[in-house]
């Protein structure tokens, strides 16, 4: 069970969290202006990196906030967590 540092509550056990997929995919402000291709890409196309991945988590059984985390998918180490709306932090290699 991972330890995930919630940006609001601090380090908490994984069982309090739910996973929310890739981060930084904004819902288009005017979906009807999008082509089918663009809408398809928004709906379905996701990265599947080996290594760093910025992803959404929710501290659902804690403060209930959504936030973002940078996780190394090879090691499950969480390199950073940050609030919704903040840019992905730069993390030295």
């Amino acid at each position: 069970m991972l330890i995930i540092p919630c940006p609001y509550c601090g380090e908490r056990p994984e069982l309090e969290f739910s996973y929310g997929g890739q981060a930084h995919i904004d819902r288009p402000l005017a979906p009807s202006d999008l082509s089918d291709e663009e809408w398809n890409s928004y709906l379905y196309v996701r990265a599947n990196p080996k290594g760093r991945h910025a992803e959404r988590w929710r501290h659902i059984h804690g403060c209930a906030r959504f936030f973002n985390a940078v996780r190394d998918t090879r090691t499950d180490h969480i390199l950073a967590t940050y609030k919704v709306g903040e840019p992905e932090p730069e993390i030295p290699a």
Partner: peptide, 9 residues
């Protein structure tokens, strides 16, 4: 805090 006790929030 909210948390889990076994399988209950």
């Amino acid at each position: 805090t909210r948390t889990m006790f076994a399988r209950a929030e």
